[in-house]
Design a protein around this nucleic acid. Structure first.
Lengths: 188, 188
DNA sequence: AAGATCGTAGGACAGCTGTCCTAGAGCGCC
DNA sequence: GGCGCTCTAGGACAGCTGTCCTACGATCTT
């Protein structure tokens, strides 16, 4: 098997396992089992568990950039684009109810572990923050753009934590509706 | 030393360590070191790690009930009491920036671990939810009381995750101000 | 003073962790 | 055929995990 394909398989499996079970709780043996490789052989592809996490974060950053570009292509207005972000809690509601937000839960876990890769994980949040800020600038709220971006991020994190805790789909829908109305007051 | 005092010391130390470093990441050795006991001797006080977690959750439930009673005694109006809840993200901002919300992060972690004690941890959320709902009933919004309670909970969780990720005190203050204005629209 | 009870230290136990090494299989190229 | 490279399996390694047991010191009761 080509090494590059195996590496991608490892990263994909690790991404899923880190999201579902948490970073520390996921062992080399778990990832090896998911990919179908022997545990000891991992050193050939990644020299440490941190290196896998680094690769997973890089992959998530790339995926996120692709998703944001797609949103920009599909939604013509900045408000529509912001709503695309807001609605991911609906789109991904099944996973969110089971595992929370992939970005929020990873960042929270790494902060508790005082893990060196915490800064890297923070780039995922910053990517969304910067993109949302740009949309609010386009909405002609340049002055408060960053504050509004942070508010939208906090919305999604709050909904994710509560949806994960209570498994309440109606709650998610209500909060998205509430957010849509709030966003309308910033449209022009 | 009296066994009951030692037990309380263990629970207090475990509570702090679980909050700061997470449940799974905290070992018997860590707790033993914090209390000044030998690791093997723990079996005398708690027959398993889950039993410690159970005791920690019970202690947090009792502490929370005390806090809610105090809020009721100190704040005469339901809106004032709700604001007491909203303002804990300011009151505890130092800890929240370092470790997130104690309730939210524990629930999120236990969900990923598929831990048997997840239901117990959920009672912490439910305690706040029920109390907030009662306050909105007193505000004569009985019909939407539970929805509004969930919205306030989501607010606090969102702010906690973002404050933990970005360490931004001004953001916390702005979100509390925003929440205060929102709450005014429900006062009469 | 003798005995029972309470709380403790220390270590044994199997099992798992991340890391690292060695040997060899499979393959293309000369 | 023989060389060299890529990729792999399997196991060794020290260290840690939660659990559990035994032996002993301190304290209290009678």
């Amino acid at each position: 098997m080509a090494a590059v394909a195996t590496r991608e398989q490892i990263v994909a499996a690790a991404d899923r396992l880190f999201y579902h079970g948490g970073y520390e709780h996921t062992s080399f043996a778990d990832i090896a089992g998911a990919v179908g490789l022997s545990r000891g052989n991992f050193y050939y592809h990644f020299k440490s568990k941190d290196a896998i996490l680094d690769a997973v974060i890089d992959a998530r950053l790339a995926d996120t950039r692709r998703m944001l570009e797609q949103w920009e292509a599909e939604a013509p207005t900045p408000a529509g684009r912001i709503m695309r972000y807001v609605e991911i809690v609906l789109t991904n509601r099944a996973d969110i109810q089971d595992y929370g937000c992939p970005v929020g839960t990873l960042t929270t876990e790494l902060a508790k572990l005082e893990h060196a890769m915490l800064g890297q994980a923070g780039r995922l949040f910053t990517l969304f923050r910067t993109w949302l800020r740009e949309q609010f600038v386009l909405l002609e709220h340049a002055e408060q753009a960053d504050e509004l971006a942070m508010h939208v991020l906090a919305f999604s994190q709050g909904v994710a934590v509560m949806a994960n805790a209570f498994h309440d789909e109606a709650f998610i829908q209500r909060e998205v509706d509430r957010m849509r109305e709030w966003l309308h007051t910033y449209e022009r």
